[in-house]
Amino acid sequence: MSLLGSVKAALFEVIDPELGINIVDLGLIYDVQVEGNHAKITMTLTTPGCPLHDSITNGVKFRVNQLKGIDDVTVDLVWEPAWSPDKMSERAKEKLHFG
């Protein structure tokens, strides 16, 4: 698997503790770039002013930094475009509906 693929796969392991769903299925990840050993992740949260703000972004940094070949991680938290439910995967929607 490429380093980019590894970073994307690692993000599936970062779980939103309130919803119990990973941040990729929630549609919070907008973009992932890898240049050399530097990963840049552009992401959002379901709402500005989410109390889990720092925890989730730090979780992303920790998890991606653990990958072999990555020495530096930048998390760019953006509010535009705003998160909307249609960004969620079917799996996440199903979990929220029945969870």
């Binding site: 970062v14 779980i15 503790p17 889990l52 925890s55 989730i56 979780g59 998890r63």
Partner: peptide
């Protein structure tokens, strides 16, 4: 639970399996 989770587990998110708030 949120406060305690933040204190105890926020540094571990992404590193290991942590409990959900529920």
């Amino acid at each position: 639970p949120f406060l305690w989770w933040t204190y105890k587990y926020s540094e571990r998110i992404g590193k290991e399996k942590v409990p959900t708030l529920k």
